[in-house]
Amino acid sequence: MLGPSSSHTAGAVRIGQIARKLFGQEPDRLTIHFYGSFAKTYKGHATDVAIVGGLLNMEVADEALPNAIHIAQEQGINIHFIAEEEIPEEPNTVKIVMEKGPDRLEVTGVSVGGGAVQITEYAGFPIRLSGDFPTLLILHHDAYGAISQVSQLLEKHEINIAHMEVSRLAKGEVALMLIETDEMISPTILQDISRSKHVIRASMLALDEI
């Protein structure tokens, strides 16, 4: 990895990479909120640079990483950093708001040391996502049968579920299914899931170990 801090630099790159994968496209506007130790020391640790590098799909040992903000600005990406005073649960917390035209996604991540990270919030849903397993994130209408449809598709393709969480913000509205699997999920399976009834949006995360 590139220095100076595994939690503030390498971990930040990983959070940026995951956020970008979850958004599925290059944002044209970024608002990055830092909390806790991130808020106090992000400049010195180049956490701002690292997050943006990750959002540009750079790797932790990429020699171009120190210029990430400059590169992003050249690509016309509008970037804002905000150091928040609020005390977070985890000392190294960042909330990334990605926008492209009307499309908007909020992702919150925490860095826990040695470059290891967790995603703690996705589109307003509290989650726990490490990125160590292939993970499916499915936004769907809160209706009966939605879960069984997805699990049947996974069964058909012989995919074992390692961990699964379902949550909703309010009854009958949008819900989130988070599924960690032992096997990789091919783009075809992901497409099948995206097309099934009740599903609004399905994204897949399979980070290589860094």
Binding site: M1, G3, S5
Partner: peptide, 9 residues
């Protein structure tokens, strides 16, 4: 470029 063992610091 370094290797985190266990961290960069």
């Amino acid at each position: 470029v370094i290797c985190a063992t266990p961290t960069a610091g």
